[in-house]
Amino acid sequence: MVVGVDGSAHSGTALEAAVAEADRRGVRLEIVHGRPWGGRGQGLCRGPRPYHTAQAVLRQAAARAEELRPGLRVSTSLVDRPAGSVLVRRGHDAALTVVGTRGHGGVTGTLLRSVSLRLAAHSPCPLLVVRGGAAAHPARGRVLLGLRSGADTEAAAFAFAEAGRRGVPLTVLHVWTRRTGGSPGCATAGFTERARAEQGVPVNAVARLRTDQRVVATDIETVRGRATDVLVGATADADLVVVAAHRRPGRTGMRLGPVARVLLHHAQCPVVVVPVPAPGRR
């Protein structure tokens, strides 16, 4: 498991979440401090002061991890490369990558100013983005899965396992939007048929998970509406929300799907974005 830190209070909150996640899984935690955003070409080792400051950030983070979970296996990495690219590379061998953000509406810190969105669009492993301070995330006793379709198998499996590790129920929330058009009679019949089919999406996803995962209390909800609005509202009662990334190519590289992007900015709990394998790699 990998967590990015930069010495800010918000990366400290991410560290606390990462320590808890590593402890639940019984895995080693790697604490990474990438190159500061001090300007183009300004490497971490260009002078003793930035280098020593970065070393101190890692020492303090490791000490905090030991304080939170004595005996947890922890390693630190000070890397003379931009934090975002470092965390993407580390993600190839990680079960989870963790970063923090300022809270509603933006990101902050030398590490976190733009890293969370870039990671969400490129991370090869699930990404946990912790928003705001620890006080902003009281325990609510459930994990929320935002399920777009039956193809979100990796996100569903992650949410199911996470609820089991935490010992809390899982709420599977599927949101769909009615498409208008056609004659009134056909539209009514089509709506009824569509509604019945949409009801089956989360039911079938949960049925598949229950055959090969630990027993988890599961609530299933199917709602017609705008996915971003419904999911953001539902995060008010969740400890964690899990969604699939649904990336697509853009002019400057891969772009994150709209639902995940909105949740990263406005969710009222930490967000896990799970990558969707390319066709043929499932």
Results as ranks from 00 to 15, higher is better:
5 V>Q: 00
61 A>V: 13
272 V>F: 02
33 H>C: 15
141 G>V: 03
194 R>W: 11
51 Y>W: 13
104 H>E: 15
32 V>S: 10
52 H>K: 06
230 V>I: 00
279 P>V: 07
49 R>D: 10
83 A>T: 11
79 V>Y: 13
195 A>R: 13
250 G>M: 11
266 H>A: 11
127 L>N: 02
105 G>Y: 08
125 C>Q: 02
90 R>L: 10
137 H>P: 02
126 P>M: 08
236 A>N: 07
2 V>K: 03
246 H>W: 10
10 H>N: 15
279 P>M: 08
29 L>H: 07
142 R>N: 03
240 L>D: 00
274 V>W: 05
203 V>T: 15
264 L>W: 01
275 P>E: 05
35 R>A: 13
19 V>M: 00
167 G>M: 02
206 V>G: 03
277 P>T: 06
203 V>R: 13
75 S>A: 13
52 H>Y: 06
78 L>E: 09
134 A>D: 10
191 F>A: 08
241 V>W: 01
13 T>L: 00
66 E>A: 15
126 P>C: 04
73 R>E: 14
138 P>A: 04
192 T>G: 05
145 L>W: 08
41 G>R: 12
231 L>D: 02
125 C>D: 07
30 E>R: 14
34 G>I: 06
192 T>C: 04
61 A>N: 05
225 G>A: 02
259 V>M: 04
238 A>L: 02
188 T>S: 10
50 P>H: 05
268 Q>Y: 02
223 V>F: 01
141 G>N: 09
121 A>F: 04
62 A>H: 03
227 A>D: 00
189 A>F: 07
67 E>T: 08
80 D>V: 06
212 D>W: 11
30 E>P: 14
34 G>K: 02
64 R>V: 02
265 H>P: 13
25 R>N: 11
146 G>P: 00
264 L>E: 01
276 V>L: 12
1 M>N: 08
245 A>G: 13
72 L>F: 04
207 A>E: 12
102 R>F: 12
199 Q>E: 06
240 L>A: 01
125 C>A: 05
89 R>Q: 14
165 R>F: 07
233 G>L: 00
145 L>E: 03
82 P>Y: 14
82 P>A: 10
50 P>R: 03
181 G>K: 10
73 R>T: 06
59 R>K: 08
99 V>R: 04
145 L>T: 07
135 A>N: 13
95 A>G: 14
137 H>L: 05
100 G>P: 04
92 H>E: 13
93 D>W: 09
207 A>D: 12
41 G>C: 11
114 S>Q: 13
47 G>W: 05
151 A>F: 10
223 V>C: 02
49 R>C: 04
254 M>T: 08
160 F>I: 10
95 A>F: 13
274 V>I: 10
132 G>R: 01
73 R>V: 08
94 A>R: 01
212 D>Y: 06
237 D>T: 11
92 H>P: 06
78 L>Y: 04
155 A>S: 15
36 P>C: 09
34 G>Y: 04
172 V>Q: 01
255 R>I: 08
141 G>E: 03
225 G>R: 01
117 L>C: 10
271 V>N: 01
9 A>E: 15
35 R>V: 11
16 E>V: 11
256 L>F: 03
141 G>W: 03
68 L>T: 00
267 A>G: 15
110 T>D: 13
214 R>C: 05
279 P>G: 08
232 V>I: 14
154 E>Y: 07
228 T>Q: 09
105 G>M: 09
11 S>T: 09
181 G>A: 03
190 G>L: 04
